[in-house]
Amino acid sequence: MSILIDDSTRVIVQGITGRIGSTQTHWMLEYGTKVVGGVTPGKGGSTVEGVPVFDSVKEAVQETGANASVFFVPAAFVLDAFLETIDAGVKLIVVVPEHIPVKDVVKMRSYANEKGVFALGPTTPGILVPGKGKMGIMPASLFAPGRVGIISRSGTLSYEFAGILSESNVGQSTVVGMGADPVVLRNLADILELFQEDEGTDGVIVVGEVGGEQEEKAAGFIARKMTKPVAAYIAGRHSPQGKRMGHAGAIVRGTTGTVDGKQEALRAAGVEVLQSPIHVAEWAKKHNLR
């Protein structure tokens, strides 16, 4: 069992004809993902890695029965492609690209919520279900099938935690990158809820970082709703403090998103706070997770 991706997931790749889109399509197919089509306006009728390319998302969905999409579209075109994808009826969207303007993300998130679409990113490595499939860029060699869920704000740290667990013979049920931008399409607590409900997941690791308030808000959800063990690591203790200007963010949040503040909130919710990533192996052992 897993979250978000299962045997019924049929994926289209948007921006499939680009350098990154085609390379990543190769890796996704090799990992066993059902990549059924690709979209690049103007390149319809061609194929990439044996996958048919369409001019529009609507056409791709009609021809292939796709129900999920992963984006390798240049940042400037993401908003347009995202709205098109929602209108074509796709219910799961993974937005890999970085440097998308916040103003665009705000619109994307608003429309996704309105239409009941589950979207991740921007700046996410995507979703990987070990041994089953992946949407995004996670490098397969670090993952192993098992029963621990991982949610990470950072892409590279999701690989790091999966790699440490796999080396200790602890597998993962699903690994989710939620995206590293100031505004993301789905909040941490929403993804935690999926793991709490997933029969294939026995424990969850939250990999956070300094800034924002995702971890603080998730702590409230964990305290109220989570019965599975949760561990968390927050990166950024030695990061230089940004030369912050303006007060609006701090006033709205009431905190400044410090490592200490996040750790305190999580600890109060019963989460085991890891001081260094490598400690995740001991935590998994303690809870008999595999």
């Binding site: 950072s154 590279t156 590293a180 300094v210 990166a235 990061s239």
Partner: peptide
Amino acid sequence: GAGLGMASMDIIGERMKPANFLETGG
């Protein structure tokens, strides 16, 4: 990656001192 870079700084910072933070992105 930024997260990996921050974690690296945290781990280096336990015993040594980083001269810089550098993150390439994708």
